[in-house]
């Protein structure tokens, strides 16, 4: 199935751009990330489940922004933003950590979806149930995944 880019953008582009602006706080970076989300959408092609695409595109935009934040450093605006930067791999979880966040190593060891799940829960404030509904997992599965993240982080901090 060839993607009708204009139709998809008309229906969901503003939401994607809004999400990218929210996380990146830079108009140029946000527009660039938004375009990349649609490039990924074209690549997904006929594997796309278009029944309720808002959640899918929101998560794709989140992932794309995390990828950008890994390479583009900026000062966090507040605690929530600092958390986001940590998840993206550029923040500092504490004074003992090096310039490159432990979380960067942490998330490089775990599945990409865990990274997005962490943003949905810790940054966006979705409940565990809402995250579970969004990613198609059980609440216990989400809790386990986030616990694994925290555990890995603890081990890395202790090392």
């Amino acid at each position: 199935m060839a993607i009708d880019i204009e139709a998809w953008y008309r229906a969901h582009g503003p939401m994607v751009l809004r999400r990218c602006r929210q996380l990146l706080k830079d108009e140029q970076l946000a527009q660039d990330a938004m375009h990349e989300v649609f490039v990924r959408l074209v690549r997904v092609g006929d594997r796309l489940d278009d029944r309720a695409p808002t959640g899918l595109l929101y998560r794709m935009a989140t992932q794309q922004c995390l990828n950008v934040l890994r390479t583009k450093r900026r000062h966090p605006e507040d605690k929530v933003d600092e958390l986001l930067m940590n998840i993206a791999g550029h923040g500092r979880m504490g004074e003992d950590l090096g310039a490159r966040s432990v979380l960067a190593k942490l998330f490089s060891r775990t599945q990409e979806s865990s990274e997005v799940m962490a943003v949905l829960h810790y940054v966006d404030g979705l409940t565990l149930q809402e995250v579970a509904d969004e990613v198609g997992m059980s609440v216990s599965g989400v809790r386990k995944r986030l616990r694994q993240l925290r555990s890995t982080l603890h081990d890395m901090e202790a090392a």
Binding site: R18, Q22, Y58, V80, L84, L120, D124, E134
Partner: peptide, 19 residues
């Protein structure tokens, strides 16, 4: 970044009629 009271994903899905 201040966290909105209601997560933005839920508001986006509500606006899109996908909830």
């Amino acid at each position: 970044m201040t966290r909105p009271t209601v997560p933005s994903l839920l508001v986006e899905k509500l606006a899109a009629g996908e909830l």
